[in-house]
Design a protein around this nucleic acid. Structure first.
Lengths: 218, 218
DNA sequence: AATACTAAAATTGGATCCAAAATGACAAGA
DNA sequence: TCTTGTCATTTTGGATCCAATTTTAGTATT
């Protein structure tokens, strides 16, 4: 492993921890000890502490004075509202992005969806589904909007995975249909249709999610 | 000043810096030196560094390795999109909040608006206007939604103040009218009307803001 | 006089050390 | 046996010190 860029140790550690949380290596409720992270990722406790502050501000961990860092456990209402936020914000990003999308971009989005349809595992689906949607927003360069969208996806990632592992397989065809309709609207440059399909896609996912209380239980 | 709670020095410093930025003591583009902050607010550079990381994650400062922290300068498009985000997200918070608002809450909101109408300076208006809107959201306890709304207000605070100092006085009657219509809808428990007045209020503000390019120029 | 190069000062990034609080184990008593 | 109080261990929070980088001031050369 290269020393890469010094002056970026805390960012490097924050990235590594973020991946661990998003991939489920660290589960909600799990405690994160600074010294353990420091020796696992290299470096002293100092950049680890800074990384934890950053992740706390992103909502990926919660810090309590003298009690340390934990991956937060979201309740059903919190996740439901996060999805309602997505229903309102992501169509805005799509609207801003659509005029900037090139045919090359659209081809790439099509390629990602084809990959999904070819059949993938749950972790692969989570990665590709996110890639698909983020590619549709790639023409939107507004920092605050895109970072907010990232946060919402990050905060709900664990529950999205739990849902997919529980009941995802039988509903895959719906996701594919919705993605295809969305992509078609993008190719027609019809922002009205695109926003409608997108909000419907998120809304349906929300409704299915909240019918599985076992995802949020203890 | 009491030593208050040890184990909260970095949070205390982050709060103090946040207030400095929001009140305009620190302006966009201005550099923040760690040592200066440390001796001004008490403590060593370490909690200052952690505070700066937190503020960076909140979008209130920008960090460049080895180059230090600055208050970011947002361009017109970024501010406009932040207002479009507010137009979509704050009605959601209002919708979730409305059923939880007591008559005591409504009386308090009325009192704040009466204070605004009594005539206030620009800094007072900025504080009371924010209090007014946050009071209407006080029934909404969803953490991610409320922290996102806080971020949007924080990020645009400097430009809202610049606008108020430039052209605010003559438009105060419109703000008062919109606030009164919103409050009336809340008292009637009409969430549809309330959302409509709120989004219109934010939308009008956005349109007036972006017609003043001198707010964003160097 | 203007520009490029060099060296010194200032500033940030990171590691180690010490203090304070919380967790957990263990023993004593009801 | 269960509860409670105390003490040792673990873990976090904060301060000081050292290294690396950037910035700035000064000087020399064209």
């Amino acid at each position: 492993m290269a020393e890469s860029t010094p002056g970026a140790a805390s960012a490097r550690i924050a990235d590594a921890l973020r991946i661990d949380i998003l991939e489920g290596v660290l589960s909600p409720g799990e405690r994160i000890r600074q010294e353990e992270v420091a020796e696992r990722l290299g470096g002293s406790r100092l950049p680890v502490r800074e990384a934890l502050r950053v992740l706390a501000a992103e909502g990926l961990v919660e810090l309590e004075p003298h009690k340390g860092a934990r991956v937060p456990h979201l309740d059903r209402d919190e996740v439901e509202v996060l999805y309602r936020m997505r229903e309102r914000l992501e169509p805005l990003a799509l609207q801003l992005s659509l005029p900037q999308l090139s045919t090359t971009d659209l081809t790439e989005i099509d390629r990602i969806q084809a990959h999904i349809e070819a059949g993938v595992s749950v972790p692969e689906f989570l990665r590709l589904d996110r890639e698909f949607h983020m590619a549709t927003y790639s023409g939107c360069t507004t920092e605050h909007l895109m970072s907010t969208i990232d946060r919402m996806w990050n905060a709900t990632q664990h529950y999205r995975r739990a849902f997919m592992e529980l009941a995802g397989a039988g509903r895959q065809w719906i996701v594919n249909a919705e993605h295809r309709l969305l992509l078609d609207a993008l190719q027609r440059a019809d922002d009205n249709d695109a926003e409608r399909y997108l909000s419907g896609h998120i809304r349906r996912t929300r409704k299915e999610l909240v019918t599985h209380p076992e995802i949020f239980g203890t």
